[in-house]
């Protein structure tokens, strides 16, 4: 039996008076690893925000684990874009990851339990950053920061991981490391990832969803050139050069 992690029904949403998403329907099943692709301003991040209940849809319904996202969002490990992180903030890596244990906290006089500290240690070592635990956030590299943010999301002990452009600013080797790690994590949890990395995505994810104002495609990652043309308005380099990845099915006719 499949279980719906996210259910988006006839959703229209936007900011101010501008609709960014128009009548979107999307079902994310338990255990899936979905890559959301689409052009800038196509509504990918808006879709993530809807799933987290950070914004409300104008029309339609968003359900997270069968409930209003606001009720269930503490079951989601959210990995925001690394560029939104304040690298000047005086906080150690361990404290950052510990903040993932704050879900359901009492606002006053909260104390971390011993189990919280243990979980954080596990998350840190799982992402190979235990040795960075006492460093300040400003003293680590971009690739390490991405790992810290994933460790924080894992500390939530989520049923689902939501990642917003996790490979932005990473080099090719760091990106493929990250994707392999996500593939492993996918054995335990559902993963949704927004990305621009159309090259690599089809080699790692199980499904893709193409978003540009509305949902163009959702299914196996065999993207046709026609779809890409429709989505981006121009052919996007879909073939990974020299990398033996399952990327595209054969298609003739485009000269």
């Amino acid at each position: 039996m499949t279980e719906e992690m996210v259910e988006i029904q006839n959703v229209t949403a936007g900011y101010g008076q501008t609709a960014v998403l128009d009548n979107v329907n999307l079902l994310i099943e338990k255990g899936s690893f979905t890559g959301i692709i689409g052009p800038n301003g196509g509504g990918k991040t808006t879709l993530l925000k809807l799933m987290l209940g950070l914004i409300k849809p104008w029309k339609g319904q968003v359900k997270l684990l069968g409930y209003n996202p606001r009720k269930k969002r503490h079951c989601v490990g959210y990995v925001p874009q690394a560029s939104t992180i304040n690298m000047q903030f005086p906080i150690s890596i361990r404290q950052v990851v510990l903040s993932g244990r704050l879900a359901g906290m009492k606002p006053f006089w909260h104390h971390y339990r011993h189990s919280d500290l243990k979980i954080v240690d596990q998350c840190l070592s799982r992402l190979d950053i235990l040795d960075l635990a006492e460093r300040q956030i400003g003293q680590i590299s971009r690739g390490q920061l991405q790992r810290v943010l994933i460790a924080r999301a894992l500390a939530v002990q989520p049923a689902m991981l939501l990642l917003d452009e996790p490979t932005n600013g990473l080099d090719a080797s760091a990106s493929s490391h990250l994707y392999e790690l996500l593939q492993k994590l996918n054995d335990e949890m559902t993963i949704i990832m927004v990305t621009h990395d159309t090259l690599a995505i089809s080699a790692y994810v199980k499904d893709i969803a193409c978003i540009n104002r509305s949902l163009y495609y959702h299914g196996e990652p065999n993207i046709s050139q026609e779809l890409v043309l429709e989505l981006y308005g121009c052919p996007v380099d879909l073939i990974a050069h020299g990398v033996p990845h399952r990327v595209l099915e054969e298609h003739g006719g485009i000269e």
Binding site: L54, I85, A103
Partner: peptide
Amino acid sequence: LFDEEFSTALGLP
């Protein structure tokens, strides 16, 4: 102070 968006997504007050 560190990450308002993540804190909101986590359901913190």
